[in-house]
């Protein structure tokens, strides 16, 4: 088992109080697994991704544990996390387009980062070039400034840079959202290729685009308002979802699996609850057609069949 997250709670501290963006999240990620992470905007996907590598100054670890390859990941201790970062856990951020220092040539920036992380750039230079070529970039991009690259090129540079040290876990946050459809496909395929070549052991792939993730991911986990509602193999989530929220999400998609574009999450009536003072019990109950009295208690995430987890009183 690569990654094991247990009852993780991470809140944002704001002037108006704590935002319960991650409120008791539990899941496992196996070796070689690519897990798609889906859910409406604001449900806590980015927060979960960041909680696996680095909490920003407003985030507070409230409870729960993370284990990677059998070792504890001390997410609340910024210093103790440093050796893990990049070497063991890496990130392709949601803002990959602006993730490169604008005033450094790309090659120089990568070398400076490598040196700062105790890796000799010469030892890895050939590998770097090979991987750039693998994602369809001329290694000459290393001599260029970020501004001289297109968005998709920057995206791929960040992809290569983030995975250069063969991390155990890669968090890819909406890496395809800002790209056109054909580039999306290419980037997603490269990531699968990276996994197949064992550049990364396992991956959390955050996305809004269920049809894209259906084609590349092994499993899909669906979040709602800081909770996990369902996790199963990609085909199960798309073809036989059990949680009412997942069902509505999937049925709102146009012909999932056959078309590649426009598989975006929209069209579910109502809005998710605010996370400043989240409702007790099942957080979906205000929008759930099946809600009943028991739903004022929080439904546990249970394994309803092998490898299929859901948090709903009706599916348990």
């Amino acid at each position: 088992m690569t990654l094991r997250v247990n009852d993780l709670k991470v809140y944002y501290q704001t002037l108006r109080g704590d935002v319960h963006a991650l409120d008791g999240v539990t899941f496992d990620l196996a070796d070689g697994e690519i897990m798609g992470l889906a859910g409406e905007s604001g449900c806590g996907k980015t927060t979960l991704g960041k909680s696996l590598i680095r909490l920003d100054t407003r985030m507070r670890h409230v409870g729960g544990t993370i284990e990677l390859d059998g070792k504890d990941v001390p997410i609340a201790d910024d210093k103790a996390m440093v050796p893990l970062r990049y070497h063991e856990i890496s990130l392709i951020p949601q803002y990959a387009m602006s993730a490169l220092n604008p005033t450094r040539k790309i090659g120089r920036m990568i070398n400076e980062l490598l040196r700062a992380r105790g890796v000799r750039p010469v030892d890895i230079a050939d590998e770097l070039r090979r991987r750039l070529e693998l994602v369809g970039l001329d290694p000459d991009v290393l001599n260029r400034f970020p501004i001289e690259l297109s968005g998709g090129m920057k995206q791929r540079v960040v992809m290569v840079m983030s995975t250069l040290l063969n991390p155990s876990l890669l968090i890819a946050d909406e890496v395809t959202s800002a790209l056109d459809v054909s580039t999306q496909r290419a980037v997603a395929e490269s990531l699968v290729e990276f996994r197949d070549r064992e550049y990364v052991k396992s991956m959390v792939f955050v996305t809004h685009d269920i049809s894209l993730v259906y084609q590349m991911a092994d499993t899909i986990m669906v979040m709602y308002a800081g909770h996990i509602v369902e996790k199963a193999s990609a085909s199960t989530i798309v073809n036989a979802p059990r949680h009412p929220y997942t069902q509505m999400l999937i049925s709102a998609l146009p012909e999932v699996g056959t078309t590649t574009d426009q598989g975006r999450l929209e069209g579910i009536p109502g809005t998710p609850p605010g996370l400043l003072n989240p409702p007790t019990g099942c957080r979906f109950k205000d929008r759930c057609p099946l809600a009943f009295s028991k739903c004022s208690e929080r439904p546990p995430l249970v394994e309803i069949e092998p490898g299929h987890w859901a948090a709903c009183w009706k599916t348990g």
Binding site: K50, I53, R54, D56, M81, V82, P83, L84, R85, Y86, H87, S90, L91, P93, Y95, S98, A99, L100, N101, P102, T103, R104, E112, L113, A116, R117, V158, S162
Partner: peptide, 28 residues
């Protein structure tokens, strides 16, 4: 607070490196 600083921090870059970048870019 810029994106590239956050990215480098997530990759565990020491604050010395990030400060150097920030200083240079702030000079412009």
């Amino acid at each position: 607070e810029a994106d590239y600083s956050n990215y480098l921090q997530a990759l565990g870059a020491p604050s010395r490196l990030i400060r150097r970048y920030a200083f240079r870019n702030a000079m412009l």
